[in-house]
Computed example of a mutant assay.
Amino acid sequence: MKKEFRVKKNKEFQEAFKKGKSFANRQFVVYILRKEEQNHFRIGLSVSKKIGNAVMRNQIKRYIRQAFLELEEEIKPQYDLIVIARKPVAEMDFHEVKKSLIHVLKVSRVLNKPRLGNTKNQ
């Protein structure tokens, strides 16, 4: 994930928490803030120390970044997304993390309709 596509500053996180909308499932909470001037979405990640040691937290963050990289074409560009991982994520593999993220992003209506060549049966 390129640097310009990440939310890094505390001020930007706080703005998303205060002005954005939140959507959640058991594994993730996602705060979404629409920014009209952006031409690419940005993500910010938060994985609490309650979830595990540094190795586990970094692995979870890598899984989330990779999932967003694979979903890049389907995510609407004008958003800041703050992803907060919950405890059940610690026992999940990459494919489960991606599936859970897709679910919460569909609920939040940030995903575009999938392309015709991108069906479940493939």
Rank of each mutant, 00 (worst) to 15 (best):
K2R: 13
K3N: 14
K3D: 10
R6P: 11
K9I: 02
N10H: 09
K11R: 13
K11V: 12
E12D: 15
E12P: 08
F13K: 01
Q14N: 12
E15L: 14
E15V: 04
F17S: 04
F17Q: 06
F17K: 04
K19D: 10
K21E: 14
A24S: 15
A24N: 12
N25Y: 09
R26D: 15
Q27M: 07
V29F: 03
Y31R: 11
I32F: 04
I32Y: 05
R34C: 07
K35Q: 14
K35E: 15
K35A: 02
E36Y: 03
E37L: 07
E37P: 03
N39Y: 02
F41E: 00
I43A: 11
I43C: 08
L45M: 03
S48D: 08
S48R: 05
S48Y: 06
K49I: 08
K50V: 05
K50H: 08
K50D: 09
G52Y: 00
G52A: 03
A54L: 05
V55N: 09
M56L: 13
N58D: 06
N58L: 04
Q59Y: 10
I60C: 11
K61G: 05
K61S: 12
R62P: 12
R62T: 10
Y63A: 05
R65Q: 12
R65T: 03
R65L: 02
R65G: 07
Q66H: 12
A67Y: 04
A67G: 09
F68P: 02
E70T: 01
E70M: 10
L71M: 15
L71F: 02
E72D: 13
E72Y: 06
E73G: 03
E73C: 01
E74W: 02
E74F: 02
I75S: 10
P77H: 08
P77F: 01
P77Y: 01
Q78L: 01
Y79D: 09
D80A: 02
D80M: 03
I84C: 02
I84A: 04
I84N: 08
A85W: 05
R86T: 08
R86G: 07
K87S: 12
V89Q: 03
E91C: 01
E91P: 00
D93E: 14
D93R: 12
D93T: 05
E96K: 13
E96I: 06
V97C: 11
V97A: 07
V97Q: 06
V97D: 03
K98Q: 15
K99R: 15
K99W: 01
L101W: 05
H103Y: 08
V104F: 00
L105R: 07
K106A: 10
K106P: 01
V107W: 00
V107K: 15
S108C: 12
R109N: 14
V110N: 10
V110Y: 07
L111Q: 08
L111I: 02
N112E: 14
N112A: 12
N112D: 11
K113C: 02
P114H: 06
R115A: 14
L116P: 01
T119F: 10
T119M: 11
N121G: 03
N121T: 09
